[in-house]
Design a binder for these strands. Structure first.
Lengths: 297, 297
DNA sequence: GATCGCGATAGAAAAACCCTATCCGCTCGC
DNA sequence: GCGAGCGGATAGGGTTTTTCTATCGCGATC
């Protein structure tokens, strides 16, 4: 039963019988028959049948919700019992948006100092994907924006506020300033994230609010790409202050606060709304609460 | 996996391998091996092993909590999907304390008018047992006191307030009064519920508060026994007003309000705190909310 | 209209499951 | 202190269930 629910979840993720089966370590016929059995048990069609996968029926969607919950609880149970036996151990999977990648260490380092048997897996993705991965039990926690754009069903722990800096060489446009306005930023050719990233949308929104828009000379979904370009001193960018700090640029780059208005968004840890949390996630929330004050400083 | 969790729940209920196995329709060896498998899966001992059942280990207790939740969710899922297919149908099991038994019809009748395919099973028990049965998924809802004595983890829907009447023949002690005090009630020989019933404890408490105590001439855990005795006109009792009304006594019995102080306790529907409720229970809660105002009148 | 990708189906091998029968240890009564 | 009886564990075998390989059939695509 549980296994069949797991197969259903895999199918929802892959939307393809063969790949879903493979991701669960079974063959495609097993996938087919198992789902058919699940449909028989529940007495309803769950999958739209055609020559290929065509999505779920409404009953299938409801069953998916239950499956996520039940499978999640079974995993939580197993982990909790394991923790009772071995102490905190295992792996925590965290999905993080690119602009917080530099801050992940602020969470993982104190955590690991306290719980050395715990491993981490960090995946970088967009803020929308964070929520999807969390929902589908593919990660245990997320690091993302916690106030703008609807969060869906999660619990969140605030970590810090993101403010923005113009990174540019001292002899570039506005390179001699102590602060610049968003309107002025609009005049600078920038390296920016691609528009599917929320950070980019935030910047676009800030610029639009003052009646201008970005002039991207380079866009990427990778912070590393932006970083290496800016570091040359020949490209400018707008980045969260924390990120700029963490990355540490050479003297060829100045980090200039952007004001008027001061744009600020909350970043936080998001975890499933389930009660009780798994011991690993509970411990992570605990550490997040503890380090949050030190991050704002 | 699910089956093994069900077996674990049965063992917790029966505290005896053989009987637990039988209640699940399997043999005792199956019970033994299944539990051993569960222990292997989780990597910990769950049951205190000796020559006979000696309770659960701490890990076993935690696993039990999870099992209740997971098994409950699986049942909810199956019921919800069934409802999507067939509409509301199936059975609702309600545990009720004796003094509300007469009021159950006030809930079931409007419910069945709306959902004719739903059957009911009503079990009578003490208020403590109501919560145990609810916790162990042995009933779907309870009808009991909702404010005094800790309720544990349930959601409750208030239905009405219980006040108390002295039932006695017109020519019995205080039989000519329009109201009596609790102190006076203490002087009357009464038919009462046994002390394991909360209603009895409420009465005892009320009497003790005015410095007297009950003089039971007959005690029973059955309302029918009390009813038939009082009906003869030769025995007196203290009963909730609603119950006395519902039962309907002959003219040989007067129902006299007891005052000074006016003792009143809330009766309500209690359901598991799980979200979402099963469709059946959600519908029951709905009906309870609707009929509650009419009950207080 | 041939080809290819996707999922369903058939049949056999493997695994899991559950039963009967029996054993072992503890408790209680005499 | 010893036999009886209860409670649970274990052994062995038959049956069901599961899962695999191989293959089919349907649609979409080029």
């Amino acid at each position: 039963m549980i296994d069949k629910l797991e197969l259903l979840l895999a199918l929802a993720k892959e939307r393809h019988f063969g790949r879903a089966a493979e991701s669960c370590g079974v063959t495609q016929p097993t996938m087919s028959t198992s789902l058919k059995q699940l449909e028989e048990i529940l007495g309803v069609m769950l999958v739209q049948r055609g020559s290929r996968f065509q999505g779920f029926t409404p009953e299938g969607e409801r069953t998916l919700d239950w499956a996520r919950r039940i499978v999640g609880d079974v995993r939580s149970m197993r982990q909790e019992i394991k923790t009772l036996k071995d102490g905190l151990s295992g792996e925590i999977r965290i999905a993080a948006i690119p602009t917080v990648l530099g801050m992940v260490a602020a969470l993982t380092t104190p955590f690991r100092a306290r719980h050395p048997d715990v491993r981490f897996r960090i995946v970088s993705c967009t803020s929308a994907e964070v929520l999807g991965l969390l929902e589908n039990l593919e990660v245990d926690a997320g690091l993302t924006y916690i106030e703008n754009e609807p969060l869906g069903k999660v619990r969140s722990v605030p970590l810090y506020h993101e403010t923005y800096r113009l990174l540019t060489s001292p002899d570039g446009l506005f390179g001699d300033r102590d602060q610049v306005t968003w309107r002025e930023v609009g005049q600078v050719p920038l390296c920016l994230l691609t528009p599917d990233m929320q950070n980019r949308r935030i910047i676009d929104r800030a610029l639009k609010a003052v009646g201008t828009e970005a002039q991207p000379t380079l866009t990427s979904n990778s912070i590393i790409v932006l970083y290496t370009h800016v570091k040359t001193g020949r490209w400018a960018s707008v980045m969260p202050a924390k990120l700029a700090e963490t990355l540490g640029f050479s003297e060829a780059v100045r980090s200039i606060p952007i004001v008027d208005p001061l744009v600020s968004y909350s970043i936080g840890l998001v975890v499933p709304p389930r009660e009780p949390l798994t011991p690993l996630i509970a411990a992570l929330v605990q550490v997040a609460r503890e380090v949050a004050p030190t991050l704002e400083a």
